[in-house]
Write a protein that binds this DNA or RNA. Structure first.
Length: 152
DNA sequence: GCCAACGTTGGC
DNA sequence: GCCAACGTTGGC
């Protein structure tokens, strides 16, 4: 089983929304590096840190579990969707999504704290740029972040 | 709102 | 294939 971190803007989709829906597709990944991980490496049963970006409380806010592996993200074909891709072909759809299931909220582990933690310095999150929306998390990083919540 | 970082596009 | 222009992400 592997660990991941998924980014979302809470104004669009938050951990609270996920809790209400219990299971939700993780659609709209439109970056090739992130897509490749979703398509090739994210497996059923993997655990995911949910991260809120571009908001007041930036950081890790909860845990989800992957319950369905990569399948075609149909939003790429829908002209009214924010995730519409006019170049996407039905024969070879470029974009995929997975389904995740809500596990639990976490007490916020803020980006500021993550940045100050030497054990987390290798996360893509704190590397220059910080633009990757799906990134791997090592077991050690996972344990460290959970410990920082004070809940475990 | 600003701006740095970085991905994508398109001309050559 | 190079690279300048442009668009987007995302923290502050």
């Amino acid at each position: 089983m592997a660990y991941w971190l998924f980014k979302t803007e809470p104004d669009t989709f938050s951990i609270d929304t996920l809790k209400q829906q219990k299971v939700s597709p993780w659609e709209g990944v439109r970056n090739y590096q992130a897509r490749n991980m979703l398509r090739d490496e994210v497996k059923c049963g993997d655990l995911v840190l949910i991260y809120h970006s571009s908001c007041k409380a930036i950081g890790v806010v909860g845990i989800a579990k992957v319950v369905k592996e990569a399948y075609v993200d149909h939003f790429q074909f829908e002209p009214t969707s924010a995730y519409f891709d006019p170049k996407a072909s039905c024969e070879k759809p470029p974009w995929v999504m997975v389904d995740i299931e809500y596990q639990q909220h976490l007490r916020l582990v803020s980006l500021a704290r993550i940045k100050k933690t030497p054990e987390l310095a290798e996360m893509p999150l704190v590397k220059r740029g910080n633009r990757l929306s799906v990134m791997p998390v090592t077991a050690a990083q996972w344990q460290h972040i959970l410990a920082m919540t004070g809940q475990f």
